[in-house]
């Protein structure tokens, strides 16, 4: 038996919208720790890891570890039927081939029930070791989204370079080239507007902008994004979900040969 109740139901909508651009089908795992997911895109270049900790839910019951294969577009269709202020309860049963979503309006005058078919998913899971990164950039998530969108209209790849001057995003395409430098800036009214650059070693890596733009679908989840870079590792683009967990995207770099 599995039962999860989330008063801030819109959060679940945002989570699904954040990842469905990258993966179509995914296996959600439920355990005492929380509701989690790890899925790779079809070309095995990018990976999304989601964690919603059990403590973040208003009610969390998970009697046994359970994996549920879901089509994210179908999930989005169901969740779109919930009002933005609705309370969402998610239920599943061992051995069942469906899950159910219940949406309650804040005043309890409308209650909707939806049942969604599960799917069999043969998912490959990767072990992601804890790592020390050469550089960690924290910046407003809307700013990062804007940069990826702007550069995406000029080129296909972005070079992200971190030096003690700040972080530079560069691209080159048929019509020309672009460089955007963001300097460390902590002198702001609100902490979420700050840009910080933590650098152990300078690093410069190239990534496909198509994937970066896909990651920015998670922007509504968090005011800040953390970009962790190391020349030996895929980049990690992390959106923290307040009091609940995170959505992390991993992307393998492009290399010159």
């Amino acid at each position: 038996m599995l039962e999860l109740r989330l008063v801030q139901g819109s959060l679940l909508k945002k989570v699904v919208d954040a990842i469905r651009d990258l993966v179509n089908d995914a296996s959600f795992d439920c355990s005492a720790t929380g509701f989690s997911l790890q899925a790779m895109d079809s070309s095995h270049v990018a990976l999304v890891a989601l964690l919603l900790r059990s403590e973040g839910f208003d009610h969390y019951r998970c009697d046994r570890n359970i994996s549920m294969g879901m089509n994210l577009n179908n999930m989005a269709k169901m969740l779109r039927c919930a009002g933005n202020d609705d309370i969402i309860t998610f239920k599943g049963d061992d051995g069942s081939d469906t899950v159910s979503f219940m949406f309650e309006s804040p005043t309890q005058d409308k209650i909707s029930d939806f049942e969604m078919k599960l799917m069999d998913i043969d998912s490959e899971r990767l072990g992601i070791p804890e790592a020390k990164y050469q550089a960690i950039v924290r910046m407003p998530s809307t700013e990062f989204a804007r940069i990826c969108k702007d550069l995406g209209s000029i080129g296909d790849t972005v070079v992200i370079s971190v030096t003690k001057e700040g972080v530079k995003f560069s691209t080159r395409g048929d019509i020309g080239s672009a460089n955007i430098v963001c300097r460390q800036n902590t002198d702001v009214d609100k902490p979420e507007q700050a840009t910080t650059v933590e650098m152990n070693d300078p690093v410069s890596l190239t990534f496909a902008l198509r994937y970066m733009n896909s990651f920015t679908k998670a922007t509504p989840l968090s005011n800040q994004v953390t970009i962790s870079l190391s020349s030996e590792l895929p980049v990690v683009v992390e959106y923290k979900i307040a009091e609940m967990g995170y959505v992390r995207f991993y992307l393998a770099p492009k290399i010159e040969e």
């Binding site: 990976l47 899971r125 072990g127 030996e232 770099p253 492009k254």
Partner: peptide, 14 residues
């Protein structure tokens, strides 16, 4: 030429 790496080269399968 620039080639796209895949994740399998960095992370192990569980």
């Amino acid at each position: 030429d620039i080639f796209q790496e895949v994740l399998a080269g960095y992370f192990d399968s569980k």
